[in-house]
Simulated scan of single mutants.
Amino acid sequence: MHDYGVDVRVLLLGGTADGRELAAALTQAGIDVITSVAGRTSQARNQVGARVGGFGGVEGLIGYLSANEIDAVIDATHPFASRMTANAAQACAATRIRLLRFTRQSWRTHPHAADWAWVPDHAAAAALAAMAPGRVLLTVGRQPLPAYRSLNDVVARVAEWQGDEVPAGARILESRGPFDFDAELALLRDEKITMLVSKDSGGAENGAKLDAAAQLEVPVVMIARPPLPEGLPEITSIADAVSWVSTPND
Rank of each mutant, 00 (worst) to 15 (best):
A127L: 14
D211N: 11
R135E: 12
T16R: 02
E217L: 00
E21H: 13
G60M: 06
V136N: 05
R142S: 12
I223M: 01
P79R: 09
A130G: 15
T247D: 05
A23N: 02
M1A: 05
Q43I: 02
P233R: 01
W244A: 01
I62W: 00
E165H: 14
Y64F: 10
L187I: 15
G15W: 06
F55G: 00
S198Q: 08
V48A: 14
R142E: 12
G56P: 06
W244V: 00
T103Q: 08
R9Q: 04
S243V: 00
A204K: 06
A124N: 12
V37T: 10
H112A: 15
V154H: 05
S243W: 04
A127K: 13
G57A: 04
D3V: 12
A168W: 08
Q43L: 02
A147T: 10
V242Y: 07
L232V: 07
L216K: 08
G231P: 03
A214S: 12
A126P: 03
G30D: 07
G49L: 02
A147L: 07
Y148H: 09
A183H: 11
L196H: 02
W118V: 01
M131A: 15
R225H: 11
A170L: 12
K192L: 15
V8E: 13
D240A: 04
S66L: 04
I34M: 04
I62E: 01
G19F: 06
A170F: 10
P227S: 06
I172R: 07
E174G: 14
E184D: 13
P111N: 08
M195Q: 14
A168P: 12
N46L: 06
R142H: 11
V119Q: 10
L13G: 05
H112V: 13
R176D: 15
A183G: 13
